[in-house]
Amino acid sequence: MKSSASKKLNIPDFRFTPTIDKVGVEERVARIQSRSIKKESKVEGMKMALNMIDLTTLEGKDTPGKVKQLCYKAQHLHDHYPDLPTVAAVCVYPSMVKTAKKALGNSGIKVASVSTAFPSGQAPRNIKLDDTKFAVDQGADEIDMVISRGEFLAGNYDFVFDEIAAIKEACGQARLKVILETGELVTLDNVRRASEIAMYAGADFIKTSTGKIQPAATMQVTYTMLMAIKDYYDKTGIMVGMKPAGGISKSKLALHNLIMVKETVGDDWLDNEWFRFGASSLANDILMQLVKQQTGAYQSGDYFSID
């Protein structure tokens, strides 16, 4: 693993970030989505996708009980199916980090916490820093921050950059995922620009969405971000992770995402160290598909855990 802290970077002028050929992206994505996947590869791919899930609950109505239940599910996805991996992490609000940490024990599953006044990010910087420090103190292994979309759209790229850098510092050992909230950035040009700002400011991961805004993780957006990661890696030698989140609830779409990762940034990213899915109902769909492949019978949600 290469650390982003060890190198001096030449920070580019973000006003001149390359523009994106939207039609080209759509065509490329359409081709990726038409790949046919044979049964054995499908099963392996689905297990890999399971292992990349950040099992998420980010609701105002979250209770410690709900979080404990989610943590149990993270460790016991479907006990009837032999040799299943666990998910990568559980993603919760800062107030639930302690509960999640305790419930997960030494299972190896990480606790990710959203912070910086998620999901709007409309709070002063000192509050965002406190929010982040609180989550880290509570034991969060990973921090999912949101960028200030208002400042970004107003053209204050330096503000956004500095904020990410400040939060990165507050994270300490915790890995930082930067949520661009692409549904609010509107254009792919903006997605590319925000990706670069986040990576140069020290993001360990860039993430599409909060899950609260539609559209969320479309293939087009994820593709644009993956290409930004590839270009950044080619320039600096630093690997940055990718996390599409929101709207990926079917295993087929998850497989298409994995194909896209392989065909853009390459095999090195096909690991939960560098690629994650932010999802809540994806895990059950994958489990149902795996059992379908095993038994031949289409499955029913009645026989799987409630999300």
């Binding site: 019978a297 289409y298 499955q299 029913s300 949600g301």
Partner: peptide, 8 residues
């Protein structure tokens, strides 16, 4: 077969 075995 699929009408018969479909769990849903």
């Amino acid at each position: 077969e699929h009408f018969g075995s479909h769990m849903d």
